[in-house]
């Protein structure tokens, strides 16, 4: 996706975000609403400027035979392998959702071993991953839970 399209999409998302927050601030008392409303107005204004700039840039690119344009302010976005990114993202969300159910220790162990395996599924290193996952969980559990007195969430096991 070209940077103009990314900018158009992000501008529209920012406008939607500003609009949503404005609606959600409908019941704020006048004195509490002034500052956030000013910021939302500023955000919407800046998003509109970015949108207009991106549309003009895209039109110029369309007119020009060169694609993408040499002066394209391309975003330094991570190129990425979406599947691995998506997998990691879903694993992280699943991990946090599991903590109240399985407890901190078990869910951390499952998450560490699972994600390590998913990122590099080789049988030869599985035992290394298992060792690292167990050691990391034990170190985190003891250092935070015991030494630093953090009240770790407990689950169905412990």
């Amino acid at each position: 996706m070209g940077s103009s399209n990314i900018d158009i999409m992000s501008s529209l998302s920012l406008l939607a975000f500003a609009g949503l927050l404005y609606i959600l601030s409908g019941d704020f008392p006048h004195a509490a609403a002034g500052y956030p409303h000013a910021l939302l107005g500023l955000l919407a204004g800046l998003a509109i400027i970015q949108l207009a700039t991106a549309i003009v840039r895209r039109k110029r690119q369309a007119l020009s035979s060169k694609a993408p344009a040499s002066g394209d302010n391309r975003a330094a976005a991570p190129k990425g392998l979406p599947a691995r990114v998506l997998l990691t993202g879903v694993s992280i969300i699943g991990y946090v959702a599991l903590i109240p159910v399985l407890g901190y220790a078990v869910s951390t162990l499952v998450f560490l071993l699972g994600l390590m395996w998913l990122l590099n599924p080789k049988h030869s290193v599985l035992w290394v991953y298992a060792g690292v996952a167990v050691a990391s969980t034990v170190v985190l559990y003891i250092s935070f839970g015991r030494f630093l007195s953090v009240w770790l969430p407990k689950g169905i096991l412990f």
């Binding site: 990691t88 992280i92 991990y95 946090v96 903590i99 901190y104 951390t108 998450f111 560490l112 994600l115 390590m116 990122l119 590099n120 991953y129 690292v132 996952a133 990391s136 969980t137 985190l140 935070f144 630093l148 953090v150 969430p153």
Partner: peptide, 18 residues
């Protein structure tokens, strides 16, 4: 990275929770 990334996440989850 296959080891570092999950450990960073576990550490960050603990840090935010603590």
């Amino acid at each position: 990275v296959s080891m570092l990334a999950p450990i960073i996440v576990a550490l960050c989850v603990m840090g935010a929770y603590a």
